[in-house]
C-alpha cells in the first residue's frame, strides 16, 4: 500500500480539525474567534450546514433514550460470585501471606533455618542447650554426697 502524499495527509488533518471544531460548536465550547470563523464557513457551505443539523438531530434522538437502572439482584450476585470464586476468603482483613510478598517470607524462613543450623552445629550436646566450658564440673565426692535410693 502506498503512503499518503503530504497533500493527502494535510487534507485529512484539516478534515479532522474541522470535525473537532464542529463537535466543539455543538457543545458550545468553541472560543469566540473560532465560532465566528466556523459560522462564516457554515454560511458559505450548505453541506456543512446540513451536517450540523444531522449532528444536532442525532444528539436530540440520543437524549430520548431512557436511563435503565441496574437489576436489583446485581449487587448480591457480585458478592456471591466473589465469595464463590475465592472460596469465601475474599472479604475481611487479608492474611499475612497476602500482605507480605512470598519472596520475603521465603528469605526470612531460610535465614531463620540457617541460624538454627549454625546453633545446632556449634553445640557439643547436639541440642539447643549450650554447654558452658567454664562451668564447674561436680567433684566425685559431690556425686557421693547425693543420697542414693
Amino acid at each position: 500500500m502506498s503512503e499518503p502524499s503530504p497533500s493527502q495527509s494535510d487534507a485529512e488533518a484539516e478534515a479532522e480539525r474541522l470535525e473537532a471544531m464542529m463537535s466543539d460548536y455543538v457543545e458550545g465550547t468553541l472560543s469566540l474567534a473560532e465560532r465566528k470563523q466556523l459560522e462564516a464557513r457554515l454560511e458559505q457551505d450548505p453541506a456543512l450546514r446540513e451536517q450540523l443539523e444531522e449532528i444536532r438531530a442525532a444528539q436530540a434522538a440520543l437524549k430520548r433514550l431512557n436511563k435503565t437502572p441496574a437489576p436489583e439482584e446485581l449487587s448480591k450476585n457480585v458478592e456471591e460470585i466473589i465469595r464463590r470464586r475465592s472460596d469465601g476468603r475474599f472479604f475481611g482483613r487479608r492474611a499475612f501471606g497476602d500482605r507480605v510478598p512470598f519472596g520475603v517470607i521465603l528469605i526470612v524462613a531460610l535465614v531463620a533455618l540457617l541460624a538454627l543450623a549454625i546453633l545446632l552445629w556449634s553445640s557439643s550436646t547436639g541440642s539447643l542447650r549450650l554447654e558452658r566450658k567454664d562451668a564447674p564440673r561436680p567433684s566425685p565426692e559431690a556425686r557421693d554426697a547425693i543420697p542414693r535410693p
Binding site: 479532522e16 463537535s23 451536517q51 444531522e54 442525532a58 434522538a61 440520543l62
Partner: peptide, 20 residues
C-alpha cells in the same frame, strides 16, 4: 487525544443519524 475524540465523535453522530 482530545482532537481525535472530538473528530470521531462527530463521525459517530453522523453515522448514527444516517442509520436512524
Amino acid at each position: 487525544p482530545d482532537g481525535t475524540v472530538k473528530s470521531r465523535l462527530h463521525r459517530a453522530r453522523l453515522a448514527l443519524r444516517k442509520k436512524v
